[in-house]
């Protein structure tokens, strides 16, 4: 009895294998035949096609000679989040002469990144370098350093540097060690100490974002036990728009652009980056550390606004307005 069933099984296995083989061979054969047929039918019609070459000349070719080459239908599929947008090098310039602590940048950033914690990603610092020097307002984003201290120390490559200059976080890989936060000399990173409680938004965003959870949509949603930070808004720059802070600033403090193109814009005026830095003596903060920030500052000279104007908005203990998140 047992012998029989064993044999039966062996038989079955053997047959199954043969059938599988036949199917595969058959499949290959069929596709071969089909392609022949196709080619034949094309030839018989001698159909000519009009095509345009890359330099704009119209030419005619036999349709049978035209071969389709493989092309990614959706460029996003080939797009590598860790490489970034090809042939770009994003850069930001912040003009301290224009800042009057309007805080629209902070508000807009908080809103669009659904910041629900107590620490905003952008801050406007009240600065005074020494006792006798004049105070000024200093907006501060992530510097997207070219030699990012945060990336160097991350044990799992969760925070990474892209070719287009951005430093982003893969919140799905991060182990929550906070070494990156300890390493960042600008103290710009914020941490989700508890569930971010972004409510329904997180679910909505998860489906709205084509790739699902994705470092380019930082904060949407935020994940408990991982850090967040200013991401230079890759989700908007990929659409050809400016980052939220740049768009929101009523005083045109933020300029954003591409270093390869040597242009930056604040939405109103577009300037040559090199010239701007030269004319206005651009500098980077904590340059001496050698982190090579991608954010330049223009010194607060010939101020367009009074420092005192900003004082009414100044709140040392709050950067995220939670009044509308019930």
């Amino acid at each position: 009895m047992r012998d029989n069933s064993l044999k039966a099984r062996r038989n079955f296995l053997g047959k199954g294998f043969k059938i599988g083989l036949v199917t595969i061979l058959g499949g290959i054969g069929l596709s071969k035949i089909a392609s022949r047929l196709n080619a034949n039918s094309n030839k018989s019609e001698e159909y000519k096609m009009d095509l345009m070459t890359t330099d704009g000349v119209i030419i005619q070719v036999n349709a049978s000679e035209v071969q389709e080459i493989e092309q990614p239908t959706n460029p996003d599929i080939k797009y590598n989040v860790r490489e970034g947008i090809p042939n770009r090098k994003f850069v930001m310039v912040i003009d301290l002469a224009k800042c009057k602590n309007a805080l629209n940048c902070v508000e807009s950033c908080n809103k669009h990144h659904f910041v629900t914690g107590d620490n905003a990603w952008i801050k406007v610092h009240k600065m005074q370098d020494s006792k006798d020097s004049a105070p000024y307002w200093m907006p501060r984003t992530c510097m997207h350093c070219d030699k990012p201290a945060c990336v160097t120390v991350c044990p799992v490559d969760a925070t990474f540097k892209r070719r287009d200059g951005l430093v982003l976080i893969d919140n799905e890989r991060c182990i929550g060690c906070r070494f990156c936060m300890a390493a960042c000399p600008y103290s710009i990173r914020v941490f989700n100490w508890s569930d971010p409680e972004q409510g329904e938004m997180s679910e909505v965003m998860m489906h709205a974002v084509p790739e699902g959870l994705h470092p380019e949509y930082a904060g949407m949603p935020s994940i408990k036990g991982t850090p967040d930070k200013c991401d230079f808004c890759p989700h908007t720059i990929r659409k050809g728009e400016l980052p939220h802070c740049v768009k929101a600033c009523p005083n045109g403090v933020f300029y954003f652009g591409d270093q390869y193109e040597d242009t930056v814009t604040n939405g109103e005026e577009t300037l040559r980056l090199g010239k701007l830095l030269e004319d206005k003596a651009g500098y980077r903060i904590l340059e001496e550390l050698g982190t090579e920030p991608r954010v330049y500052y223009l010194p607060p000279v010939n101020r367009l606004v009074d420092f005192e104007d900003g004082l009414e908005n100044y709140d040392k203990y709050q950067s995220v307005d939670k009044s509308d998140i019930e």
Partner: peptide, 26 residues
């Protein structure tokens, strides 16, 4: 105990990066 995501402990081995002092500790 200090790791906020101990559930991802395995990542330390899966994605280990040699230049991080934490990997040296591991």
């Amino acid at each position: 105990l200090d790791m906020a995501r101990p559930d991802r402990l395995l990542n330390l081995f899966l994605y280990a990066r040699l230049q991080s002092p934490i990997t040296w500790d591991v």
